[in-house]
Design a protein around this nucleic acid. Structure first.
Lengths: 196, 196
DNA sequence: GTCTATAGCCAGATAGAC
DNA sequence: GTCTATCTGGCTATAGAC
């Protein structure tokens, strides 16, 4: 929108197809798992012929990298929105868990998208991947909040709060029961209140 | 050993090959993930020719079911051993987490085998699978321990203790850091002591 | 830039000799 | 019961017309 005035439609369209491919890849890989998802699945979901995928991404792995980066961008945006909407660290921490718990219906069906990716990519020979950041970024953010509260073992608490989210997400999807996520959100809120 | 005296070697060998196949499938599927593991991988790990696999299991999915049942048997054996070794519910709960934390090195490399299976199989179209039991059995067991302690919301605490294990396992494998698992074990032990 | 057709490979599963 | 050879299909990736 703030780009060059020249050919906004053509460049816009080109970006559009690329974005559609990434969005479709996010959805389908999340729903089916990375290994089980074929490029034909993604192309079909994006409404793009299979062969054309390779104009935008040289390999399936390149597309996967773009998917991870998109997730990272979304996490960054969510944390920024929470900081803008809530002034104090305890409120921010509760807001983080609340925002995640709001997706309880989705989590019950498909699990946490970031946890799924980390577990699946952790089993690859590729070695450590960008996916680690999907967990590290929220942990670091939570650590800064606990530090701001003057809590000494802020890192441990940050690990614990994200682990409780990831573990509850796994049980929520295993049992297909969204209420687990919501119950844990209230429980974590009380825990944080008790710390302050 | 307590079977018929007739042909103990032949029947023993037959069972042996089947057991070797299942054991190899457990290891390889845990290390690589179910989808990425081929029957050729498993056959090679068991030292058995590919075509012979189909004498023991009609399909890859049949072999997967046997793998899940093996994990369930191991869980049952572990819980029984804990009950035999520890008399009181708090000790038993701490022993459960301790036993899981003892595998921190393995978890750091490959995650929790049961959580991995549930997350991967939860994404299948097959519908709810036996894998759910891998989580339900320990949750039910923990619930009975909390009930025996006279705690009113025993189910919630059981969910929480297993979720904390699963979440910590996911972070432990993501960060490749066994100390996370060990730290959480101590933390959970203090939490349980505070409940009694 | 876009799309069709297909190469090349590897998976699950089977046939049938031994 | 055991194993080799192979069928069939689906996947990633490419070639090349438009």
């Amino acid at each position: 929108m703030t780009d060059s005035v020249e050919a906004p439609e053509r460049s816009g369209r080109r970006q559009d197809k690329r974005e559609r491919l990434i969005a479709a890849a996010c959805q389908v890989m999340y729903a089916q798992g990375v290994e089980k998802t074929t490029l034909a699945d993604i192309a079909a979901a994006a409404g793009i012929p299979l062969g054309n995928v390779y104009y935008y991404f040289k390999t399936k792995n390149d597309l996967l990298q773009a998917v991870i980066e998109t997730h990272l961008d979304e996490i960054g945006a969510m944390l920024a929105a929470i900081e803008a909407a809530h002034a104090t660290p305890p409120e921010r921490l509760k807001a983080l868990f609340g925002a995640l718990a709001e997706q309880s219906a989705l989590i019950a069906r498909q699990g946490c998208p970031h946890g799924s990716l980390c577990l699946e990519l952790g089993k690859r020979a590729d070695g450590p991947s960008l996916a680690v950041e999907l967990i590290r970024v929220p942990v670091d953010w939570a650590e800064r909040q606990f530090q701001a509260m003057g809590i000494p073992d802020a890192r441990d608490l940050a690990i614990e709060v994200i682990a409780r989210y990831q573990g509850t997400a796994l049980l929520t999807s295993t049992f297909r029961d969204p209420s687990l996520m919501e119950g844990e959100s209230r429980r974590v809120a009380r825990w944080i209140d008790a710390l302050g």
